[in-house]
Design a protein around this nucleic acid. Structure first.
Lengths: 217, 217
DNA sequence: AAAAATATTTAGATTAAACTAAATTTTTAA
DNA sequence: TTAAAAATTTAGTTTAATCTAAATATTTTT
C-alpha cells in the first residue's frame, strides 16, 4: 500500500515528464514538491524498488507503466474532485487546488467511479485539463498557446498552463475563462504584448500572460 | 496543526466518553484505535501538552472544551460525508464508514459548510446519529433501546448502537432500517428473544440484536 | 581539456508515531 | 490486608520521511 508521499512524488514526476522530454531530474521534483534534493533521491530509490520508476544514479527517473497508471489514478481523482467542488459546492476555479490535493488521496474505487457518474462523466476539469476515464484514458484535444494564434484569427480559451490561484484570479478580473472567445488584434513587436478581443471587450495582455493561455483555433 | 493521528485519538476519546462515565482509560482507547496501550500513553501526553485533554498518570483522560470542539468538528465531517455517500453516490449504509474515516480528515471549512448546504442541512446521518451544525450543536432526541420498548407499544427505528457493517447488513436482510415501524409482540422469558412486527412482517430477533436498535416510542 | 559551477548522492541526524519488554501503579481477590 | 492480577507507564528500538553537510558526479565555461 502506498503512503501519501509516494503518491505525491508519482504525480509530480508525471507532471514534470509531461512538460519536458527525457528523464526527470532530481532538482525539478525537489522544486515541484518543495523538498530538498537529498530527500528526492531517497524517494527515487524507494519508488524504484517498487518498480514504479526506472532510476539510474545521476540520470533522473522515468515512470514505468505501473507508475504511469498510479499517477493517472491520482490525476483522475484530483480532476474529478475539482469538478465537483466547482459544479456543486460553489468553489471558484482558483480555490479548488489545495482541497483537491487532499481529496485525491482518498482510497475508494467505488467513491471515484460514483463521483464520476454523479458528475455525468465529465471529460475536462474547471481548468480545461482532461480527466482520465475509468480505463485511465483521456482525450487530449489539440491546443495552442495564445501566443501562437495568428493575428485576427478567432480562438476559444480551452485551458491554462499556469494553475496558480494568482493567475486564475487575474484572468477572472480580465473576464477571461474557459469558453471565452479570443482574438489577437495586434501584436506589439517592441515588447511582445498583445491587444486582444476577449468576449465583448478589448484589452492588452503581456506575453507572459498569453503564453499561459491555451486556445482552440 | 494536527496530524491525522491526533484527530483519530480525539474522536476515539469522544466516542468512548459518550458511552461511559468518568475518565477514559488507556486500554479502552487502545482497543478502539487498534494500538498498544504504550502508544496510547504517549499520545495522551501529547494531547495533554496541547491542552486537548486533561491527563493524570494512571487515571485516564477527559477532553477539555477545546478537545471536545475538535472532536465534534471531526464527527461533523464524518457524518456529513456519510450522508453524501448514501444520498448521492449510491453507497449503502453499511459501506460508508471506512471511506468517511478518510474524508473526515480533509481540512477545509468551506468544503464542510458547502457540503452541509448542498445536503440541505441534514440533522442526522444514515445510521440515525445526529450531525453537529456549524456551531457544533446537535439535537439528540430521546431514544430508547428496543429491549426497553413495552410489549405491544409501537416505536420507530431511529438509529443503531452497533455501526458495524455486519450488523447493518443483517438488519438489511431483515428489512429493518431507519424509519421502520417496530412493535414487540412477545418477549420470551426463557432466552429474552423477541417476536416483533417490523413494517409488514413479523420476525424473531435475539436480545443482542434488540439492544443495538434505538427506537422512538 | 582543465577549472568552475551545478547537480546529485551519501552519511548521519531528527521527528512523529508506532512497537516490545520491563518496571510500576492500581485494582481485585483471597 | 496482603498477594495476585490487571492496567499503565517507562525505556529503549523501529520505520518512514524529512533534513544538513560533506562528498562525488556531471555539465558548462573559459
Amino acid at each position: 500500500m502506498q503512503t501519501l508521499s509516494t503518491e505525491d512524488y508519482l504525480k509530480a514526476i508525471y507532471h514534470v515528464s509531461q512538460s519536458s522530454s527525457g528523464a526527470v531530474a532530481t532538482t525539478s521534483i525537489a522544486k515541484q514538491i518543495g523538498a530538498k534534493p537529498s530527500s528526492v533521491t531517497d524517494m527515487f530509490k524507494k519508488l524504484s524498488d517498487q518498480n514504479l520508476v526506472k532510476y539510474q544514479k545521476y540520470q533522473g527517473v522515468s515512470l514505468t507503466n505501473e507508475g504511469v497508471k498510479t499517477a493517472l489514478r491520482i490525476v483522475r481523482k484530483h480532476r474529478l474532485w475539482e469538478s465537483f467542488l466547482v459544479s456543486h459546492l460553489n468553489f471558484n476555479w482558483d480555490e479548488v487546488h489545495q482541497v483537491a490535493e487532499q481529496l485525491e488521496h482518498i482510497q475508494s474505487e467505488k467513491l471515484t467511479n460514483e463521483l464520476e457518474r454523479f458528475l455525468d462523466y465529465p471529460t475536462h476539469d474547471p481548468h480545461g485539463d482532461p480527466i482520465p476515464n475509468r480505463a485511465l484514458f483521456m482525450k487530449t484535444y489539440s491546443k495552442i498557446l495564445l501566443t501562437e494564434l495568428p493575428v485576427n484569427k478567432e480562438g476559444v480559451c480551452i485551458g491554462v498552463k499556469d494553475n496558480s490561484s494568482g493567475f486564475l484570479r487575474y484572468l477572472d478580473r480580465r473576464q477571461i475563462g474557459i469558453g471565452t472567445t479570443l482574438q489577437v488584434l495586434h501584436r506589439e513587436d517592441f515588447d511582445d504584448s498583445l491587444h486582444i478581443q476577449a468576449g465583448k471587450s478589448t484589452l492588452m495582455i503581456t506575453k507572459k500572460t498569453a503564453e499561459n493561455i491555451y486556445v482552440k483555433p
